[in-house]
């Protein structure tokens, strides 16, 4: 066992680009959505809040895999627009994790003490100034660890593109398994795959730990 590493590992790593691309596409989309939807949910206007809430609950309430099937197989049938499989996977990842991350943004903005806002008002700051110079700088350091954790989840989520036949690492491992049916080879293939994902996640783990440490540094938490 574990003798075919020279053959198996390079084949699995052939899907690394797709996995990383899906991760990056999903992350950029997710965090853009998270900031917009998260701030919308703290809005004073009921309409804005309700729209954002419906969006977030819709994508949090239905399963990621169901959404991926929706974008890949239902969307082309409903609309004249046919997303490529990569786009379908990326959209599902971005929307789903964006909905989750928007809760992190919302929680962080709400956790900034009320007194900060009052102080900013008494300094005659406009709404935009208040957000930009007072609330957000404090909220960002609180939300970063949550965003880090969310990124690890997103990386794990990229393995689901296997279901819509996108040739990521999991998909290529599945091909390899089909060609090597001996029990020892199958265990070997998936062991390599698990460790590859773990190695990919390591930088995110350390980044999140560092952010967690930094978030509480030099801030009075009374």
């Amino acid at each position: 066992m574990f003798t075919n590493i020279g053959e198996f590992l390079p084949f699995i790593l052939g899907g690394l680009t797709t996995t990383v691309q899906a991760f990056l596409f999903g992350a950029v989309l997710a965090y853009s959505i998270a900031i917009v939807a998260g701030l919308m949910r703290t809005s004073k206007l009921a309409v804005v809040r309700i729209v954002a809430t419906i969006f977030v609950e819709l994508f949090r309430g239905t399963s990621l895999l169901v959404q991926m099937f929706f974008f890949a197989f239902v969307f082309p049938a409903l609309t004249p627009f046919t997303p490529s499989l990569f786009l379908a996977g990326g959209l599902a990842l971005g929307f789903n994790y964006g909905a989750y991350a928007s809760e992190v943004v919302r929680g962080a903005v709400l956790s900034v003490p009320e007194g900060q806002k009052e102080a900013a008002i008494s300094l005659n700051m406009s709404k935009v100034q208040r957000m930009r110079f007072v609330i957000l700088p404090q909220a960002i350091r609180i939300m970063l660890p949550g965003i880090g954790n969310n990124s690890i989840e997103l990386l794990k989520g990229t393995s689901l593109v296997y279901f819509i036949s996108l040739a990521d690492m999991t998909y290529r491992a599945d091909i390899l398994r089909g060609a090597n049916t001996a029990l020892s080879s199958q265990i070997e293939i998936y062991t390599y795959l698990l460790f590859t994902y773990f190695v990919l996640a390591l930088p995110l783990i350390f980044l999140t730990r560092w952010l967690e440490k930094r978030a509480s540094k030099g801030v009075s938490t009374a």
């Binding site: 794990k156 393995s159 296997y162 999991t170 491992a173 398994r177 265990i187 998936y190 062991t191």
Partner: peptide, 19 residues
């Protein structure tokens, strides 16, 4: 714990299913 938590559950499913 860290290893199980940071690797995709789908891959873990395949691993256990085939092993």
């Amino acid at each position: 714990i860290e290893f199980i938590r940071t690797t995709p559950p789908l891959v873990q499913l395949f691993f256990v299913y085939y092993a």
